[in-house]
């Protein structure tokens, strides 16, 4: 069986770190810069980066609607940091949450800490000028929080975290993505 092909949105950000992580767990990453790059994907990662740069890039490339279609087909989507912001109500509107950008402050306040994600287990979480979830709808499951602010959420086939699993050796979230890839058509 050929490995699941997982797109990594590569408008800007740490898409290469995600591509490496996907290869580590047996996936085949594909760089996504235009709508055509989305054809035939089994899943998608929206990486960390600058959310304003990504927002402009998604608009410039006409990627918003094709990205929504992919997510609505039931294929798994993982968003990290800026990826969480892209998925929220004010951006792609795929997650019923409102994200607060740079919620933990400027770079001086960036940090790492140990988290335990409900159903996914413990991991080291690296937060870089990170957002948090300010408000979440009833269908959104909060998997972890920092000081009462949700930083990992799941809604159906979409998993979004405010930190960067791709910058550590822990591959739990990428394994989750691969485990759910190929489930939907």
């Amino acid at each position: 069986m050929s490995p699941p092909v997982v797109g990594v949105l590569a408008i800007q950000g740490d898409f290469e770190a995600h591509a490496r992580a996907l290869r580590d767990v047996g996936g085949e990453p594909r760089i996504v810069r235009t709508p055509e790059d989305l054809d035939g994907l089994d899943g998608l990662v929206i990486p960390g980066g600058e959310s304003s740069t990504m927002t402009l890039g998604i608009e410039r490339e006409g990627l918003a609607e094709p990205l929504r279609e992919l997510a609505r087909s039931g294929r798994p989507v993982l968003g990290t940091c800026a990826g969480l912001i892209m998925l929220d109500r004010e951006h792609l509107g795929l997650l019923d949450v409102t994200a607060r950008r740079n919620a933990f402050g400027r770079q001086l306040h960036s940090f790492e800490t140990d988290l335990d994600l409900d159903g996914l287990g413990p991991l080291r979480a690296v937060f870089i000028r990170a957002p948090w979830v300010e408000e979440a709808g009833g269908d959104v499951e909060v998997l972890a929080d920092v000081d009462g602010h949700p930083v990992a959420v799941r809604q159906g086939n979409i998993l979004a975290v405010a930190f960067h699993p791709e910058l550590t050796d822990n591959r739990t979230l990428h394994q989750w993505l691969l485990a759910h890839a190929g489930v939907a058509s």
């Binding site: 590569a10 800007q12 600058e50 940090f111 790492e112």
Partner: peptide, 17 residues
């Protein structure tokens, strides 16, 4: 805060930009 991973990590986020 201020670990090398956190410091180098911000540069990772700027990539392609």
């Amino acid at each position: 805060t201020g670990t090398f991973r956190v410091k180098a990590g911000l540069a990772e986020m700027l990539k392609g930009g």
